[in-house]
C-alpha cells in the first residue's frame, strides 16, 4: 500500500464502523415506533440514501443529474414485473442492477455534456423512460398499472431500505477515499487537466454514475411494495429527483454528512408542513430552497466546515 493510499484511507475504518453501528441502532426502530412514525423514518432513510448516492457522483464532479427518478422508477418496475416470480430481496438487487445498467448506458451517451445541458437531458431521459414503459405496458400487456399483491411487512421493507442506506453510505465513504473518488475530484476541478494527468475521465465518470444509480434503483424496487398500485406516472415522479437534488444541495453535496442530516431535516419538515399547511407546503419548500441557494450555496454543511485550511 503506497503512502498516498494510507493518507487517503485515514479515518475510513472509523467512518465505516460508525455507519454500521448507526445502522444497527436504527434496526430496532420497528419494535419501538408506531406505524406512522416508522413510515416517517422510512422516508428519512430513503431520502438519505438517495441524496448520499446522488452526491457520490454529482458532489465531486459538479454534475447536476435529474435522472434519479428514472433509476427509482425502473427499480419499482422491476419489482412490479418480478415480484410474482422472485423473492422480494432478489427484486431489490435486480432493481439496483437495472438502475446501474441504465445509468451506464445513458452515461456513455450523455456524460460529455455539462451543466444545464446535462440536467435537461437527464430530465428528458426520465420522461422518455416513463413514456416507454407506459407504451410497453399498454401495447404488450394491455394495462395502465399493476397491482402488487402479497407485499412484505412494513418492518421487512424498513430493514431492506435501512440495509440499502447503510450500503450507500459505506460505498460513499469508500469511493471518497479511493482512486475513483480522487479522479472524480480532479474531473470536477478541471476535467481536461485531469485527463492530461492520466485520468480516463470517460471511464471514471461512467463507472461512478453507474455505481451511484444502483442505490436509487434498489430503493425504487424496495419501496414499490409500499404502493399497492403501481403506474408509471407515480413511480417516475420527477418530484423524487428534484427532492433528492434539493436535499443534497442544501446539505452540501461535497460532504458526506450534509446530505444525511438534510434528508432527515427535509423529510420531517415536509411531513410537518404537509400536515399543517396541506395546500401551501410546496410553496414554503420552494421559498426555503431559494433562500438557501442564495445565501448558503455551499449547503448547510458549509456552516460547520472550517473555512481556514490547516497550514503547513
Amino acid at each position: 500500500m503506497s503512502r498516498s493510499t494510507l493518507t487517503r484511507m485515514r479515518g475510513v475504518p472509523r467512518a465505516l464502523t460508525l455507519t454500521v453501528v448507526a445502522g444497527a441502532l436504527l434496526a430496532v426502530l420497528p419494535w419501538l415506533l408506531s406505524d406512522f412514525m416508522l413510515s416517517l423514518a422510512l422516508s428519512c432513510l430513503m431520502f438519505a440514501a438517495l441524496a448520499v448516492s446522488w452526491s457520490m457522483f454529482c458532489g465531486p464532479t459538479h454534475y447536476l443529474s435529474l435522472a434519479t427518478s428514472a433509476f427509482f422508477g425502473l427499480g419499482a418496475y422491476v419489482t412490479a414485473w418480478g415480484l410474482e416470480s422472485m423473492p422480494y430481496g432478489l427484486t431489490v438487487l435486480a432493481g439496483g442492477l437495472v438502475g446501474a445498467a441504465f445509468a451506464a448506458l445513458i452515461g456513455v451517451a450523455v456524460l460529455h455534456l455539462r451543466g444545464a445541458y446535462f440536467a435537461v437531458i437527464t430530465f428528458g431521459l426520465t420522461e422518455l423512460v416513463l413514456h416507454s414503459i407506459t407504451y410497453v405496458e399498454k401495447t404488450m400487456f394491455e394495462t395502465a398499472g399493476r397491482i402488487i399483491s402479497d407485499a412484505p411487512e412494513n418492518a421487512v421493507i424498513y430493514w431492506t431500505v435501512l440495509g440499502i442506506t447503510v450500503l450507500a453510505v459505506a460505498t460513499a465513504i469508500l469511493v471518497r477515499a479511493s482512486r475513483l473518488g480522487f479522479a472524480l475530484a480532479g474531473i470536477g476541478g478541471d476535467e481536461e487537466r485531469a485527463q492530461t494527468l492520466g485520468v480516463n475521465a470517460r471511464r471514471a465518470k461512467v463507472l461512478a454514475f453507474s455505481l451511484s444509480a444502483f442505490f436509487p434503483g434498489a430503493l425504487g424496487a424496495a419501496m414499490a411494495v409500499r404502493w399497492t398500485y403501481i403506474e408509471p406516472m407515480s413511480v417516475f415522479n420527477p418530484f423524487i429527483g428534484f427532492q433528492t437534488v434539493l436535499i443534497a444541495m442544501v446539505g452540501g453535496a461535497q460532504t458526506l454528512l450534509g446530505p444525511i442530516v438534510s434528508s432527515v431535516f427535509f423529510s420531517l419538515l415536509t411531513e410537518f408542513l404537509r400536515l399543517r399547511f396541506p395546500y401551501a407546503f410546496l410553496l414554503v419548500l420552494g421559498i426555503l430552497l431559494v433562500v438557501l441557494v442564495l445565501y448558503l450555496p455551499g449547503g448547510l454543511a458549509s456552516l460547520f466546515v472550517r473555512r481556514a485550511r490547516p497550514h503547513a
Partner: peptide, 22 residues
C-alpha cells in the same frame, strides 16, 4: 490549471496517482 480546491500536495499527488502510476 491547478486544482484550486486541492492542496498543493494533493495536486502533485494527483499526477503521481494517475499518469505517474501508469
Amino acid at each position: 490549471r491547478v486544482f484550486r480546491d486541492m492542496t498543493a500536495a494533493d495536486n502533485v499527488r494527483f499526477a503521481l496517482e494517475f499518469a505517474g502510476r501508469l
